[in-house]
Design a binder for these strands. Structure first.
Lengths: 337, 337
DNA sequence: CTTGGCACTCGGGAACACAGAGTGCCAGAG
DNA sequence: CTCTGGCACTCTGTGTTCCCGAGTGCCAAG
């Protein structure tokens, strides 16, 4: 069906189109790549490729352009991820190492990805669901009001103000805190609800209403409130890339966190790279854009995902290389801090 | 120099140009606004206005367009801030009231502003410098490693991991924490350095190296590290507004936090609204864009600023009304929580 | 199966003309 | 002195036409 030469032609078309942003014709192909055959032969192959939907022509008598299906084949079988240069690796490492807290790690990662790929970068904060509790703090703010601070092993800190149903003495707060910490230290978030369930019973009856209030906020914060935060950057690169689709839609999608999370999140072993090309994309506003994403994490747990978003016509090997490298380094940094 | 009618003409030009986005000619003016004079008269006035630099024509024999100077006069003398409708006010109130922590307040404020004005919204986090300490927490994470958590009266929480020079027992940590809290509770950030200065002396000598380390990180976090965080949103609105200048520059400026902070921050009593029009703007990439900003805060202290950024050709009265209203409501919310 | 030749098809750019909107100026009226 | 109507002039934007060139599909021959 598709012999080697046809595949080579497809690869050449993709590469040329990516670098020139113009439909590529049979003659240009024969010139630039030494395929060892004449333009006429290439035309036949192109006809076959078009027949099967890998390429298309914008209008009669123009060159060919890869379809989404063509890019898909290219990514799956015709290309291999291009590793970064040594200089780039070192730059990543030093740039990320300078971060002092989680916010800064995330922010720097976004910039890095955007700069390396010249595309829009998206980074998801390390997920709540897969992390574990490192410490719980209860800080009295006023009568009947405390702040609950949760520190997770990913460095993430969640805080919530809690209004209490009744007064409670500081030493009883301290006791509750100690109790919580001894139960929850190192506890994976998925186990939190059951771990916490019998805490009220172990407290003196008069403390139970307060404890119940605090616990319910704690659960709500950790478990129910699954709004995975994410950050993006490099939108200036959108202006350069001329999108077939209005870039208004792209900007809108970027601000719809829900959409983005779905796009990033849908698959993935830890170091798998997910590529979603154009119309493979479930969200209609992003026709014409591709997403290259990967998971990152410390050790072997995937904590969250990151990736870039760009025009379908992008340099996949390079982009995938950059995404993979950044994901790995972020994982290392997180593990080390 | 500029009699009343000329001013009326200028106002009419601005209003028409804002609503149509086209150069406005003398005939159209005479039709749409009942100025009581003929087009020819208006032409004379326009010639005078152009003479003095308030309007300009894109090319000979086209209508007139306001210059930055013209908009300036309009904003200063010819317009008055348009208050929001009751429905809008209520929407703001309920939307902001639903926020549970500072992050969410800020995020919702951005969305709100962007939606109300159909422009890019920028919100600065409540400034560190003008807030005060509510609580200091020191959480042991591992041997020789603690997390320092600072809770400020604005609801802002700063955390930093600190590596200690030597081991220290938990109860001595607790003592240090108590000491810090008793000194710093309610302390304005500007007083922190002096307040903290003599703490080491009051500690047993063997604790001093650790205390010094922690204090230096604390000072660094609160005082030296003035990177005022800010958040923006509504970039999709950029695509609709056709900028004279490439919107690439605008996107770039948005990601350059430093630039934005300067733009927002440069003046302002608490409920003053700052308008910076086109070339009044110090940053060259933002020629063609105007900024409408206001301070917000609880009580009478200005905590930070917020605003919107849009094309010079924007509806200033409405935009200013929205910015003012949002700033007020955010202030209220912050004061109440 | 490959190749060279050939007729055919479009898209995009250049040249051109034209209508319409808007101006500036002038002379006359109030 | 100010306003008004008239008039000639100057643009831009748009629509039309035309042509070139790149690229294709097909065919017949190697």
């Amino acid at each position: 069906m598709l012999d080697d030469r046809k595949l080579a032609v497809l690869r050449a078309i993709v590469e040329d189109h990516v670098s020139t942003n113009e439909p590529v014709g049979s003659k240009a192909l024969a010139d630039r790549h030494n395929l060892g055959v004449s333009p006429a032969t290439i035309r036949n192959d192109m006809a076959a490729l078009e027949e099967q939907g890998y390429i298309t022509q914008p209008h009669t008598s123009a060159g060919r352009v890869p379809t989404d299906k063509g890019y898909r084949l290219f990514v799956d079988r015709l290309s291999q991820i291009k590793p970064l240069s040594g200089a780039e690796r070192r730059a990543i490492e030093t740039f990320l190492a300078g971060a002092v807290d989680l916010d800064e790690i995330v922010m720097r990662t976004v910039r890095l990805l955007a700069q390396l790929t010249r595309q829009v970068a998206v980074v998801q904060y390390p997920s709540l669901t897969r992390s574990s509790v490192r410490h719980v703090e209860i800080v009295p703010l006023a009568e009947r009001r405390v702040m609950l601070v949760l520190i997770l092993n990913t460095g993430r800190v969640e805080q919530r103000v809690v209004d209490l149903p009744e007064d409670i003495a500081d030493d009883r707060i301290a006791h509750l805190r100690a109790e919580l910490n001894s139960c929850l230290d190192g506890c994976g978030l998925s186990q939190v609800p059951e771990t916490v369930a019998d805490i009220p019973e172990r407290l003196p009856p008069e403390d139970r209403p307060v404890a119940a209030t605090i616990l319910s906020v704690l659960l709500e914060t950790l478990v129910e409130r699954h709004e995975e935060k994410l950050v993006f950057g490099g939108t200036a690169n959108l202006a350069a890339a001329d999108f077939s689709v209005g870039l208004r839609d792209v900007l809108e999608a970027l601000e719809e966190q829900v959409v983005l999370i779905r796009l990033l999140g849908e698959t993935g072993g830890l170091s798998d790279i997910t590529v979603r090309i154009g119309s493979e994309n479930p969200y209609s506003g992003l026709r014409g854009t591709s997403i290259v994403a990967a998971g990152y994490g410390s050790g072997d747990k995937e904590l969250a995902r990151l990736g870039v978003l760009g025009p379908t016509r992008m340099d996949y090997p390079v982009t995938m290389g950059a995404v993979r490298a950044v994901a790995r380094y972020v994982g290392q940094i997180l593990a080390g801090s």
